[in-house]
């Protein structure tokens, strides 16, 4: 059978007295595109925070490629091949677009904390940065400071940094939020392309994006997963209709 790339076991998270994640068991299979949907405030971003190490769970465990990563800090989880993007754009504002993406590349090609070799002397870093910027259509903007990009460009850069290190597990938190129809279509094509051969977890509100992209969908409502299945199963699930799709009918 297929291998679990991410496995969540009895995951719970409380902020003070409020329990935001209320016991999640989920298994994301290697190579699948797994979407998380759910109403505002359901806990989707919190879930990503837990998996990526930004937040520590109150109880439960997180396995990545069969190993327990629950106690690890974010940078160690990243070095094990899990990379994430943020719902609120989280980039390096005073650095150029080029430097932003190269920052995403450096650790993965073994540059570590070197301070005795010029960063330009690594052809691998430059080639990868250039390829990613080309893929994301940002190559013409490479010398511009990230802080002055347009909103859509910043969203693209956010994803570019996330995939730059070549992680094989990628978490995208509402990558198309705030984009126009046209920009969304282009972003979805890109996401499909960069997640080829990797494991993807994606949070999205846009149903057309989800149903076109995802192999499986989990529905998160009020901190608990009420259903997991293929797009067709989810579309026809009465519980989901009631809890979620019903109120947000498109």
């Amino acid at each position: 059978m297929s291998v679990s790339e991410i496995e969540l076991k009895g995951l719970k998270k409380s902020f003070g007295p409020t329990e935001v994640i209320r016991g999640i068991d989920l298994s994301v299979v290697k190579g699948e595109r797994h979407a998380i949907i759910g109403p505002n405030g359901a806990g989707k971003s919190t879930l990503f925070g837990l998996v990526s190490g930004l937040l520590k769970p109150t109880s439960g465990a997180i396995m990545l490629k069969g190993q327990d990563i629950t106690p690890l800090p974010p940078h160690l989880i990243n070095r094990r091949g899990l990379s994430r993007s943020f719902q609120v754009t989280n980039i390096f504002h005073r650095m150029s677009v080029w430097e932003n993406v190269r920052c995403g590349v450096l650790w993965s090609i073994g540059q570590r904390y070197r301070f005795w070799r010029d960063v330009d002397s690594s052809p691998e870093a430059n080639e990868r940065t250039e390829r990613i910027l080309t893929d994301f259509n940002l190559i013409d903007r490479k010398d511009v400071l990230a802080g002055v990009l347009t909103y859509a460009e910043q969203r693209a850069l956010e994803i570019a940094i996330t995939v730059a290190g070549g992680a094989d597990v990628i978490l995208l938190d509402e990558p198309t939020a705030g984009m126009s129809r046209h920009e969304t279509d282009r972003a979805v094509d890109l996401i499909r392309k960069v997640s080829e051969g990797r494991t993807l977890m994606i949070v999205e509100h846009d149903m057309s994006v989800i149903f076109g992209l995802a192999d499986r969908i989990s529905v998160l409502v009020y901190g608990a997963i009420i259903a997991t299945g293929t797009p067709d199963q989810i579309r026809n699930d009465p519980k989901v209709k009631e809890a979620y799709l019903g109120q947000e009918a498109h």
Binding site: S52, G53, L54, P73, P74, H75, N78, R79, S83, R84, F86, N90, I91, F92, H93, R94, M95, E99, C103, G104, L106, W107, S108, I161, T162, A164, G165
Partner: peptide, 14 residues
Amino acid sequence: NATRDNAERVQFVG
């Protein structure tokens, strides 16, 4: 420079 701009994000590039 990256840490100066955004120390949180630095963690997520390793």
